[in-house]
Design a protein around this nucleic acid. Structure first.
Lengths: 252, 252
DNA sequence: GTCTATACTACGATAGAC
DNA sequence: GTCTATCGTAGTATAGAC
């Protein structure tokens, strides 16, 4: 639908118009403020109902205009989702930079990592919920863009764990890859339950999680013996599952 | 469209037929095996595409029949989801019984709890994924039935933590409620990444997670001083977020 | 910039033949 | 028990009036 370049039009030079209206007000681009409002409204509805279950009508209702009018601002429902996810994506990458710029012992860096990532999750509850719940609704190429960030986080934490093992502060029995994903899972679960108005501040949440992670990783090299974790409070005997009348055997 | 009762038909007596085929084989009830097959197929498709994004057509394709035929076995798409979730629901409640019947120190019980719950998650990856992703698509009363189990798990773990604090094996600085949910989050995240064919056995996964949890909770009463966790490997200074040109302030 | 109206498609579910 | 055919609804997106 782009007008072909060769076609002569009444004006000379190129089709791109330069500000011509004299004042500093911009022309032709829809107002950013309104667009941002729509993004936030859509994020809220996506959060409540899920992306797929949300109709354009729902979003229009939330904004307070009719659904036809929405298309003045957006071009498709998926574009909306993508832009919302790009918001947290940008912030996430920025946080990674901050973490990388932090100095201290490896264990201190791990504490910083957890604190920052938890805070990020708690500060962007709605968008993070939409991200974890609905990023699979993006087209494959767009999904790739957004999800790559997750792998970066994983890799970065893993590297910190290895550093910690090198200086002896992190238990050498731990598998860095598996441990990193355990920790990330704990942090990423936040959106399921945390509510900022629930009497638990974000900073207290972040600090508590960091405490737990640090305690779970730590190991005194002086007293370390291989397998000490597995042998501490060892697994007791558990009654076997009773035979279930409804049991058709499981897949998965 | 039900034939009116008063209308005379060629037979006498009522329309309801009693078993007349002689042998012990049941009539009129659709075969259980086929129904189970449909349930499993549906779970698989729900897992891949999400409940809302899955059409009856998709499920019929997966089973290998036409969508009209599906309605011989099911009465609605939501019924299908409900039955799938009831499967894990039943198993989950049964596991709670097993955990309750376990004896040992509180910390050993905690290890048993984590091991059983992680194993449950890993053995039912598909259904657990559908559960966490789509239980909100159930009607409110059905949702209540299924979700109540989650609260039971939470409560049970919380009680174990309190027990552990009483006998001194769990750090007294921990908030049982918050800690329980941290641990559950780590376990429930499994469906996002674990694949049974990935070289990590379920029992190894479960044991490793239990190790991490136990290490994260443990505390030596002899050396405990309030706040020691927070002060260990203390938070370093982190560079502030740089000012972002794209930053329209956040909601959430 | 917001509205009304509508084209087009997909889905869930039912009816009834075989 | 599986099929074909279809009804009714709801959703995305567009066209064009104001």
């Amino acid at each position: 639908m782009v007008r072909s370049v060769g076609t002569p039009t009444k004006g000379n030079s190129l089709d791109i118009e330069i500000e011509s209206k004299g004042t500093s007000r911009r022309r032709s681009r829809p107002p950013r403020r309104r667009r941002q409002e729509i993004l936030e409204a859509a994020a809220g509805v996506f959060h409540e109902k899920g992306y797929k279950a949300t109709s354009i009508q729902d979003i229009a209702d939330a904004v307070g205009i009719l659904k036809g009018s929405l298309y003045y601002y957006i071009t498709s429902k998926e574009d909306l989702l993508f832009e919302i996810l790009q918001d947290v994506h940008r912030q996430g990458l920025q946080n990674l930079e901050r973490i990388e710029a932090t100095s201290g012992t490896p264990m201190q860096k791990i504490r910083a990592f957890v604190t920052i990532h938890v805070t990020h999750n708690a500060e962007n509850l709605v968008k993070m919920a939409v991200f974890f719940h609905d990023f699979r609704s993006l087209s494959p190429d767009r999904r790739e863009i957004i999800v790559a960030e997750r792998d970066l986080y994983d890799l970065h934490l893993r590297n910190l764990l290895v550093e910690g093992q090198k200086d002896g502060s992190v238990c050498p029995d731990l598998d860095p890859k598996l441990t990193a994903i355990e920790i990330l899972g704990m942090m990423n679960w936040i959106y399921h339950w945390y509510r900022p108005d629930g009497g638990l501040s974000m900073s207290e949440l972040a600090a508590t999680m960091a405490d737990f992670v640090v305690a779970g990783l730590a190991c005194d090299p002086a007293t370390h013996t291989p397998g000490h974790r597995r042998n501490f409070a060892p697994m007791p005997t558990v009654p076997p599952p009773r035979i279930d009348p409804n049991a058709d055997e499981d897949d998965d």
